[in-house]
Nucleic acid binder design. Structure first.
Length: 195
DNA sequence: ATGCAGATCGTCT
DNA sequence: GACGATCTGCATC
């Protein structure tokens, strides 16, 4: 079961909440699957959000957010880590949801190997960590996450309760630092930072 | 448990 | 030329 394009064309805050509980799946060249349950997200809302990379307009780096929803927006942060986002919002709105943490479900040996450790709760507890664990990188830039390729999203039951909090490390974003646009599965021990 | 320095480079001014 | 939507290891309490 996969998610519909209309799902991602909803308001980005709605999508950020609705992605909690859904599964992110990585199919390796040899057919092996790594999979995790999304437990933490952040909404980045384009022209109304000073923390959003697209706030100042389109560029080579941010062009994915200006394209159709339900595709991968990936960027390099601090010169060494990647962050994975899902483009979202109505057509024409350059918005996205940052996937911040996963609860590992399948492919544990591969995740542990790529992360160089075997502590379950820390394998995917951060945007940079989950990209390493799932082997997500620039080659996935712009990938259609509904196409059933080597990186896709699969429908799963939503969590019983959602917690909202302030987004992490956007201190430069003036009034936007206070927006409650970070969402997590209530009580999950797999989040990056306790809300 | 909390805090801080260092790593490292593409993107934008 | 400056700066991150980060992570890790080491220091200190």
């Amino acid at each position: 079961m996969h998610l519909s394009r209309a799902f991602f064309e909803q308001d980005t805050v709605t999508v950020a909440k609705a992605l909690l509980g859904q599964h992110l799946v990585r199919r390796e060249p040899d057919g092996t699957l790594s999979q995790g349950r999304i437990v933490e997200t952040e909404a980045y809302c384009g022209y109304r959000d000073k923390a959003c990379h697209s706030y100042k307009g389109k560029s080579d780096r941010t062009k994915a957010m200006f394209g159709p929803s339900g595709h991968a927006y990936i960027y390099l942060i601090y010169g060494m880590y990647h962050c994975f986002n899902v483009t979202s919002g109505p057509p024409g709105e350059p918005e996205a949801v940052l996937i911040r943490a996963l609860e590992p479900l399948d492919g544990l040996p591969q995740m542990e190997s790529r992360r160089g450790m075997n502590k379950l709760r820390q394998l995917c507890s951060g945007p940079g960590k989950l990209c390493i664990a799932m082997d997500i990188h620039k080659a996935h830039y712009g990938t259609d996450l509904l196409a059933g390729g080597d990186l896709y999203l699969a429908a799963a039951p939503p969590p019983a309760e959602i917690t909202a909090s302030k987004r992490i490390n956007i201190g430069y974003a003036e009034e936007a630092v206070d927006f409650l646009w970070r969402f997590s599965v209530a009580g999950s021990s797999f989040v990056s930072v306790k809300p």
